[in-house]
């Protein structure tokens, strides 16, 4: 049984939460520039590591807010809980974020806002 520290409500039993799967999957904005195979990376293909995994959770029976969790899929140890829209801070979770094949995909590149006429993506 996991004890998950909701950033808004504190330590709660896993029963109160739902897991939303892999974190940091952004919808490609420039989707028309992608091939079907590249779009499949976004739509269907999932990171499924044996080790540190970055995933989204929601406190369904509590505050109903989303947050990210870095968790080990072998020991079930929760390494870090961090807010939506941010990347992890701890070394192990940072390494997992960097190592994910998703960082190299065209779908992820296309998720950044187009930056014509001096607008820069963030």
């Amino acid at each position: 049984m996991l004890l998950i520290k909701c950033p808004f409500c504190g330590d709660r039993d896993e029963l109160e939460f739902s897991c939303g799967g892999e974190a940091h999957i952004a919808r490609p904005l420039a989707e028309n520039t992608l091939t079907d195979a590249e779009f499949a990376d976004y739509l269907f293909l999932r990171d499924n590591p044996k080790g540190v995994f970055l995933e989204r959770w929601i406190h369904t029976d509590g505050c109903r807010r989303w947050f990210n969790v870095a968790r080990d899929t072998v020991s079930h140890e929760i390494i870090e809980v961090y807010p939506m829209g941010e990347t992890p801070k701890t070394e192990a979770a940072k390494a997992a974020h960097k190592a994910s094949w998703r960082r190299q995909t065209a779908a992820e590149a296309a998720a950044k806002p187009a930056s014509p006429a001096g607008r820069s993506g963030s």
């Binding site: 896993e14 029963l15 897991c19 799967g21 499924n48 044996k50 899929t73 072998v74 079930h76």
Partner: peptide, 13 residues
């Protein structure tokens, strides 16, 4: 179970 795991054991709920 509702989350990914390689541990060959599950959660009680």
């Amino acid at each position: 179970d509702k989350y990914n795991s390689y541990a060959q054991r599950g959660s009680f709920p």
